[in-house]
Simulated scan of single mutants.
Amino acid sequence: MKKIIFLSSLLILLGGCNQDFQNKSNNINDKPQVVSTSTIISNLTEEIGGEEINNISILAPGADPHIYEPVPQDTIALEKADLILYNGYNLEPNIIKLINSTGIKAEKLAVGEKIKPLDFDYKGQKKADPHVWGDVKNVIVMAKAIRDKLREIDPKNESKFSENATQLITELEALDLWIKTQIATIPPNQRKLITSHDAFQYYSKAYGLEIPGTLIGISTEEQPSAQTIKNLVEIIQSSGVKAIFAETTINPTLIETVAQEAGVKVAKGKLYSDSIGVKGSEADSYVKMLKINTETIVDALTNDSPAN
């Protein structure tokens, strides 16, 4: 009889523990499952969603969205998602193909496509430049779009998403003004930006810089020809720039070769173009990324001392 009572008590206890576990599991699963493609969109999403969402970033800091090849874990994450946030304008072509080909039922938002794009010519056709985040005003629009989508899929946390977004937007508005004042310190004839790939058109247009040329075009898949390199060297020499810039997601060897042939320096710091930095680095958020880029540009274009 005692054994029966003991076993009954044990089963009740285990049943209670199992129920507690299920409740905890349900609490976790109650949070919207959000998948972000680029590190920039992921950072904005985490700032706005906070602890009220579970966010997974497909791309790791430092990864190049133009050439990223999805892995099986990406498919699993996308299939489990309630919401998929991606840049669009073909920034992450292989991930976009995966999203469109797997019959995923999640809500989807091409955040970057909320912005009217700048165009570029590709083989005689007009294409949209995907690097919309270069202009902080564009990112304010993107932040509002993320906020609205999160409020739509999780109305019970609407006020929290709004509060977080307001705080972020205030920070972005201050950043936009700060960049303008910093770029204004560069001598007007030196406000020229030459980089590894053509990712800074929005930044340059917003903050008063000229882009005389780049080593490669919009996508890092491109390989510059000998003639392209020769032409860029001539552009650099005729433009009178003091420095040109390498980028964190691109091998710097070719841009360093161009600098040597043109007789100019490569800036000390590399620019963050398609990805924020790793956690704990100087550029581990969108805001910090734009700040360090601006400081690097201003220092290189106003400082007469060699950079390398």
Rank of each mutant, 00 (worst) to 15 (best):
S225F: 04
E234T: 11
Y207N: 04
T214E: 01
S225K: 08
G213W: 02
I216A: 00
F200Q: 05
I218L: 07
L215A: 05
Y207F: 07
L215K: 02
S204K: 03
T228S: 14
A199D: 04
Y203H: 06
Y203E: 03
T214F: 00
S219Y: 02
I216E: 01
A206Q: 05
S196C: 11
Q223Y: 12
A226W: 03
Y207K: 04
I229W: 08
T220S: 03
Q223T: 15
I216V: 11
K230Y: 12
E210P: 08
T228C: 05
E210I: 14
Q201R: 14
S204Q: 01
Y207E: 02
L215F: 01
F200R: 03
K205A: 15
Q201S: 15
S219Q: 04
Q227Y: 01
L215V: 07
K205Q: 15
Q227L: 13
D198F: 13
Q223L: 15
Q227R: 10
P224N: 09
Y207S: 12
S204P: 12
G208N: 12
Q223R: 15
I235T: 15
I218K: 07
A199I: 01
I229D: 06
L215C: 02
T220R: 01
I216Q: 00
T220V: 04
S204T: 10
Q223A: 15
S219C: 03
I229A: 09
Q223K: 15
G213D: 13
I211E: 12
P212M: 10
L209A: 03
E210G: 09
E234D: 14
L232V: 06
I211C: 08
G213A: 13
G213T: 05
A199E: 07
Y203C: 11
N231R: 12
S225W: 05
E234G: 13
Q223P: 05
I216T: 14
L215E: 05
